[in-house]
């Protein structure tokens, strides 16, 4: 690992000052992606700004029509939270399936979505639930937040403070894990709000995306077989040693059918 300076600020204002004053400062949330990346010398930040002491980033609570989850909330906390389990059980279940127990004890919601790994689980939840990402500067709708491979709408110096989730009528997240890495080969989050249906797909493309054809078909008739005639273009999907793009296109369809069945 290359050398860096380490900071442990106690407020968002102090975080912002550090980000603005250092040449190439990176934020350290749970560190479950960043630290392995640094160990492999794939990044060389001048400074790490540890968010662990920033109280403004903590907390998980029910709000009017959903949940408000602080950026530094660990996956374990979400999965074990009685509030999360009551308000959006599919979200708690998703959090309980990220990585392994040790990763879930450290990894955070904010870290996961700011990193936007193409195979991460949380981005599918945010997109399907129409969540709003709160930052230290503004609120960003999930549809505008995930912009590409490891890319988000966050500006330099901007950080996620919390995510606001709206409670769906029905929701289900299903994924097929790679046998080796345990990341999602493909994962789908299906959610319904009244007559509207949202279907988000992770692991299959360069970035999480909504499968709008499936959404329209399911909104008209919420049954698994209404997507039988639909196809995802493998040209838009990932093909790698674990699964071809054609396999992923098929897999997404299978997962959506199952998720609808279990909604």
């Amino acid at each position: 690992m290359y050398a860096f300076d380490y900071h442990r600020p106690a407020s968002l204002a102090e975080v912002a000052r550090l980000l603005a004053s250092r040449e190439d400062a990176k934020l350290l949330a749970g560190g479950q992606t960043l630290l392995p990346t640094l160990r492999q010398r794939l990044a060389q930040p001048t400074d790490l700004v540890d968010l662990a002491q920033v109280d403004e980033l903590r907390g998980l609570r029910a709000v009017d029509d959903g949940l408000l989850v602080g950026a530094m909330t660990t996956h374990h906390t979400v999965s074990a939270s009685p509030v999360a389990r009551r308000v959006i059980p599919a979200l708690a279940e998703l959090a309980g399936g990220i990585g392994d127990p040790q990763v879930r004890n450290r990894g955070t919601l904010g870290g996961s979505i700011a990193n936007n790994d193409p195979a991460a689980d949380y981005p599918a939840a945010l997109l399907a639930l129409g969540a709003t990402v709160r930052t230290n500067k503004r609120a960003i709708r999930a549809d505008a937040f995930f912009t590409g491979l490891f890319e988000t709408a966050l500006d330099p110096g901007e950080l996620v403070t919390a995510v606001q989730f709206t409670r769906p009528d029905r929701a289900r997240y299903l994924k097929l894990r790679s046998q080796a890495s345990r990341y999602a080969t493909a994962g789908v989050f299906v959610a319904t709000f009244g007559t509207a249906v949202r279907v988000a797909v992770t692991g299959a493309g360069a970035c999480v995306f909504r499968w709008t054809d499936a959404e329209r078909a399911l909104a008209a008739d919420f049954r698994p077989d209404v997507i039988d005639g639909l196809t995802l273009d493998p040209g838009d999907l990932n093909g790698d040693i674990h699964a071809s793009a054609e396999y992923r296109a098929h897999l997404v369809k299978v997962l959506v059918r199952r998720a609808v069945n279990q909604c």
Binding site: Y6, R8, L28, G31, Q32, L35, P36, R39, Q40, L48, D50, A52, H76, D100, P101, Q102, V103, N105, R106
Partner: peptide
Amino acid sequence: TSQCGACVIHLNGRSVKSCAVLAVQ
């Protein structure tokens, strides 16, 4: 690479991979 778990210890009562935590944390 924080896959194998040989380095698991308890940090404030919870199991973590000590190769994916900085000493200063």
